[in-house]
Every structure is written in structure tokens, then in C-alpha cells.
């Protein structure tokens, strides 16, 4: 009889071991690109005069995921998916970039994000997202042609509150779970690039030299876990074009953690 009890205990231990093993495998299969932690480096004066510490993030949006160290390059998964990625301070394509779709920023801080958009675009399915929402001044700073070689504006810089809904490349939209805390909601449309995009960073005739550049600043509230995603339907060949790249974390969506 004692042998039976022992066997039962062994089964329980073994069973939970199997569960832990499978869990570890499934968790590892997430293929998480890791979290980019932004540190306060500067200060920002909001329109109401309050001064906040400021962090800066520089992102690129590519027509495919062949730009660097994580996804499509080197034969990884889904080279044909559109993808966000960490970029250099002037929109450079970083050959060693992890995808950079998970971010961590401090609470009660001004976050300034600059997005260089290398992809073309079409019409949004909901023009709500053609408007700038939730930034500190209600606006975004926009340059239609940014010269990545000269590292300067190739067209005039302007303040925008919205862009035509049929010229959107992608959007950067942060939202979260409704709880007792203040909610962060930021959505900024990213104008399409006029130059047709092809290839990968390292190829001949790779990404365009003139991406669009959009800069915006928002103030974070209390600590919290948010997500961001693109609200432009760019998962081609799927229902409502929200499958494929749009439904896989690390391409057009990621975590946005407000902490510390």
C-alpha cells in the first residue's frame, strides 16, 4: 500500500514536472526581442509650464523585417512581415538592431518618440487614427522627406494634428487595460513614404533614402503595463488585413511598460 502512495506522489511530481517543461518550452517559443529601457536624459517643458524629465526613443518602420538582428534577417521567421525596429538617432538602419518593440519608460516623464517611416501606405479603415491623439501639445512634428544620407530635412518641418486618411503608412497607438489608474492613450499617424520601398538594408537599392519623420511627445502617468500596436491594416492577405504581421507580437505591436 505504501508503494502505491509513493507511486502516486511520484506521478504528481512527474506530472508537474512535465507541465513546467512544456510551459518553459512555450514561453521560450515566444521569441521575445527583449525590452528597450529608456533612461531620462533631458528635460521637457509642457505647454502648461510644468517641467518633466525627458526620455527619447528613435524607431524605424520597415516594409519588411530584413533590417537587422532579429526577425527576417538571416532566414528568421516571416521576412515578408512589415516591422517596427529600433533605429539610429538620425533614422539610420541599425544592422545589429533587435526589433525594439518592447519599451520601458519611467512614470511621470515626457517621452519623445521619433519614427522614421520607410514603408508606403494606403487608406486607413478608420480615419479616427489619422489624427494625433494624446500627445502633450495635441500635435506632432512632421517632415515629409528626411534625408538619411545628409541627416537633414529634405522638406519643411511642420506641426500637424492630422494627416489625410488615405496617405497613412502606419500608426503608433498606445493603449492599456482599464483599471483604477490613469490611462495612457497615445495615437500618432505616420505618413507613408512617397518612395516605393524594396529590399533590405544591406541590399542594393534597399530601403528608401527619404523616409517620413514624425516626432511626438507625451507625458506618462502612474506605473502601468500598456501595449502599443499599429492601427493601419497592414497584414496583407488576411481578413480586414489585421492578421499575419498585425497579429504577431514583435512586428507591428509590443509592450509599453511605464515603470520607475
Amino acid at each position: 500500500m505504501n508503494k502505491r502512495i509513493f507511486a502516486a506522489l511520484a506521478t504528481v511530481v512527474l506530472g508537474f514536472g512535465v507541465i513546467a517543461g512544456i510551459g518553459t518550452y512555450v514561453a521560450a517559443a515566444k521569441n521575445d526581442p527583449g525590452v528597450t529601457v529608456a533612461e531620462a536624459a533631458d528635460s521637457y517643458t509642457a505647454p502648461d509650464g510644468t517641467v518633466y524629465p525627458q526620455v527619447k526613443l528613435s524607431l524605424n518602420v520597415y516594409p519588411n523585417s530584413l533590417f537587422g538582428g532579429h526577425h527576417g534577417a538571416g532566414g528568421g521567421a516571416h521576412p515578408d512581415y512589415v516591422s517596427y525596429g529600433l533605429g539610429g538617432p538620425n533614422g539610420e538602419v541599425l544592422s545589429d538592431a533587435q526589433t525594439g518593440t518592447n519599451f520601458q519608460v519611467p512614470a511621470h516623464t515626457a517621452v519623445t518618440i521619433t519614427v522614421y517611416q520607410y514603408d508606403s501606405g494606403e487608406t486607413l479603415n478608420n480615419d479616427y487614427f489619422a489624427h494625433v491623439r494624446g500627445t502633450a501639445d495635441g500635435k506632432a512634428t512632421f517632415v515629409q522627406r528626411w534625408d538619411t544620407k545628409a541627416k537633414s530635412n529634405a522638406s519643411t518641418e511642420q506641426q500637424i494634428t492630422n494627416i489625410p486618411a488615405d496617405m497613412v503608412g502606419h500608426t503608433f497607438t498606445i493603449h492599456g487595460i482599464s483599471d483604477k489608474k490613469s490611462q495612457l492613450f497615445v495615437s500618432v499617424p505616420l505618413m507613408m513614404s512617397n518612395d516605393e520601398e524594396v529590399g533590405a538594408a544591406e541590399e542594393e537599392g534597399g530601403y528608401t533614402q527619404f523616409p517620413t519623420k514624425t516626432t511626438f511627445t507625451f507625458i506618462t502617468g502612474d506605473e502601468g503595463e500598456y501595449v502599443w500596436n499599429c492601427e493601419f491594416p497592414c497584414g496583407d492577405g488576411t481578413i480586414a488585413r489585421f492578421g499575419a504581421a498585425m497579429s504577431t507580437m514583435g512586428y507591428m505591436s509590443g509592450h509599453f511598460i511605464v515603470k520607475g
Binding site: R4, A7, A8, T11, G15
Partner: peptide, 10 residues
């Protein structure tokens, strides 16, 4: 359920 599994097999 694991205890039951052990009981069934045993």
C-alpha cells in the same frame, strides 16, 4: 487527477 492516474495505472 495525477493521483487518479497513478491509481489507474497501478
Amino acid at each position: 487527477m495525477l493521483v487518479l492516474l497513478a491509481a489507474v495505472i497501478g
